[in-house]
Nucleic acid binder design. Structure first.
Length: 143
DNA sequence: TAGGCCATCTGGTCCT
DNA sequence: AGGACCAGATGGCCTA
């Protein structure tokens, strides 16, 4: 448990309001709220597990720091589009194996991942996220 | 120290 | 009625 807001089960306005009702009702409401909190925690944990699984299959470009949830979604979107492009291009041109591989590398260039283009508020210009400071020759594409 | 990211709590809404 | 889902609020942790 990382942090915890003061809940109405501890003390607070809601608590005092419920105190004016019967103790049974207060107890029932408290129990229901705590159960709902537990369910919500579990739901969010499931969501985070899904994000972790998504991070594992999405390119990391040698980045040591894990992608945020927002970045993960953006990267997944771009990755899917890039893969889709590979498939459609390969079909269209009926390429050889070597050509197909070259096409893949071409599609995997960072500039094909606009999700990681950041806006620099200081300079007012776009710049490439540090995630792309990788050596492509070294094939440091972590998936 | 400010800003980003995150976990948690909470109340509202919708669905079964 | 109770569970699932969602969004807003809040506070902790971390980094530049």
């Amino acid at each position: 448990m990382k942090s915890r807001r003061p809940s109405f089960t501890d003390s607070g306005s809601e608590s005092s309001e419920l105190d004016s009702k019967s103790p049974e009702k207060y107890e029932t409401a408290t129990r229901r709220r705590m159960a709902a909190n537990a369910r919500e925690r579990k739901r969010m944990q499931g969501l985070n597990t899904a994000f972790d699984r998504l991070r594992k299959v999405v390119p990391q470009w040698g980045q040591d720091k894990k992608l945020s949830k927002y970045e993960t979604l953006q990267m997944a979107l771009s990755y899917i589009m890039a893969l889709n492009r590979i498939l459609t291009d390969a079909k269209r041109h009926n390429t050889s194996h070597r050509q197909w591989l070259e096409l893949q590398f071409d599609c995997m260039q960072p500039e094909n991942y606009p999700c990681l283009m950041r806006y620099d508020s200081a300079s007012g210009q776009e710049y490439i996220h540090s995630a792309f400071s990788y050596q492509f020759d070294g094939h440091q594409v972590h998936t």
